[in-house]
């Protein structure tokens, strides 16, 4: 559990650094998706602290969800800043939420084991 919290803390810092680097070269153009790209990994820290007992399936689903949502938010931020769009971007929240739901459903199962 401790190593997971440290890992997700590092990932959260990574996203904060990445968004600041991107914003530095963004000529004053901002995107809220970019600004809040660190949130999914920050939530993973809380999840890891709250649910110390988690089986591998729940863990993998939540990890996949956090990465999917973060990468999707970062990409949407890049598109917003460039003032462009692509319909494929909607796959990220779709996949991310399905994985998140799967992970959440799976957590109690692990607690009972």
């Amino acid at each position: 559990m401790k190593s997971s919290v440290i890992k997700w803390s590092i990932i959260t810092v990574f996203w904060i650094v990445a968004l600041n680097i991107y914003n530095h070269f963004g000529h004053g153009v901002y995107s809220n998706f970019m600004n809040f790209v660190w949130i999914p990994s920050a939530i993973m820290i809380i999840v890891r602290l709250l649910f110390t007992k988690m089986d591998r399936i729940a863990s993998q689903l939540l990890v996949a969800s956090a990465w999917t949502l973060s990468i999707g938010m970062f990409l949407k931020g890049v598109f917003d800043i460039a003032n462009t769009s692509n319909n494929l971007i909607y796959l990220y929240p779709f996949l991310g939420i399905i994985l998140l739901a799967g992970g959440i459903i799976r957590i109690p199962y692990a607690q009972h084991q």
Partner: peptide
């Protein structure tokens, strides 16, 4: 196997989306 396969899928999707856009 799920982790690496999904990571590869996610990377491919991201690369394709970025290339398709730009």
């Amino acid at each position: 196997k799920f982790g690496p396969i999904y990571a590869l899928t996610l990377l491919s999707l991201t690369g394709y989306t970025a290339a398709d856009t730009f």
